[in-house]
């Protein structure tokens, strides 16, 4: 019996020139060309995009939620990376 699933592709759309591609969802396609065409018809019917990336879902490596603390908490105390950390006299404008 037919048990041949078309692969799943994750679709990223650039909505306007100057913005980065954003994940919008997924779809199935037999090949890359079809993935782009399907993404165009599925995710840009209302002029939502100017560029499409289609990436085989199996090619995406994701961080694991279990590692969330290890990966992201260390950034918590590095407040000096943010401009608001630095108090400057009011006379200094626009820095």
């Amino acid at each position: 019996m037919e048990k041949q699933h078309w692969p799943l592709w994750e679709i990223f759309i650039r909505s306007r020139q100057g913005l980065s591609h954003r994940h919008v969802g997924s779809l199935h396609a037999a090949d890359a060309e079809m993935a782009i065409e399907n993404a165009r018809d599925v995710y840009t019917r209302r002029q939502e995009g100017v560029s499409i990336w289609a990436i085989p879902a199996t090619e995406i490596t994701a961080s694991s939620p279990d590692e969330k603390d290890v990966l992201f908490d260390p950034a918590d105390d590095k407040v000096y990376r943010h401009p608001t950390f630095y108090d400057l006299p009011d006379e200094v404008k626009n820095m």
Binding site: E2, Q4, W6, A30, D31, M34
Partner: peptide
Amino acid sequence: GAWVREAAGAHAEKR
């Protein structure tokens, strides 16, 4: 549509 889906899969593999 079964033959169509199979054909597209087969073609992708060949390519």
